[in-house]
C-alpha cells in the first residue's frame, strides 16, 4: 500500500513509481493499493502517470487499485474525461484487500 500526499507533480509520481515497482519486485507482491486521499489536483498528465504505474505493476504480476479519491476531486476527474480501464478504484482498504484475495 502506498499513499500519495500533496500534488501529483512529475517528480513525486516518478518517485512513487520507482518505490512501487521496487516493492512489487522485491516482495513478489500480487496487489498494490495507492491511496489518493492526500491529492487535490489530478490533471491528465498525473492521471496518465498513475495509469502507467498500474500497467507496469501488471507486467510484474501485480494488480494496482486506487482508493481514497476525495469527493471534491471527483467532479474534476469526470470532466477530464473517460479514464483508462487501467485506473481501477476501490472504496477502501478492505475492498481493495477483498478484490486482491478474490484473485488468488
Amino acid at each position: 500500500m502506498a499513499s500519495v500526499q500533496s500534488e501529483l507533480g512529475d517528480s513525486a509520481v516518478d518517485c512513487l513509481r520507482r518505490r512501487v515497482l521496487d516493492q512489487v519486485y522485491e516482495n513478489s507482491l500480487c496487489g498494490v493499493l495507492i491511496d489518493l486521499s492526500g491529492v487535490e489536483i489530478i490533471d491528465s498528465f498525473g492521471l496518465r502517470k498513475l495509469v502507467d504505474i498500474a500497467k507496469m505493476t501488471r507486467l510484474l504480476g501485480a494488480e494496482t487499485r486506487f482508493t481514497g479519491i476525495r469527493p471534491e476531486v471527483v467532479a474534476s476527474l469526470v470532466d477530464l474525461g473517460t479514464v483508462s480501464s487501467d485506473f481501477v478504484v476501490v472504496a477502501d482498504l478492505d475492498a481493495g484487500l477483498a478484490a486482491f484475495s478474490e484473485r488468488t
Binding site: 487535490e40 489536483i41 498528465f45 469527493p71 471534491e72 467532479a75 474534476s76 470532466d79
Partner: peptide, 14 residues
C-alpha cells in the same frame, strides 16, 4: 466552493 475551485485548479494545472 471547494469542488469548483479544484476544477479551476485542475484546468490551470493542465
Amino acid at each position: 466552493d471547494r469542488t469548483r475551485s479544484l476544477m479551476i485548479g485542475t484546468a490551470v494545472s493542465e
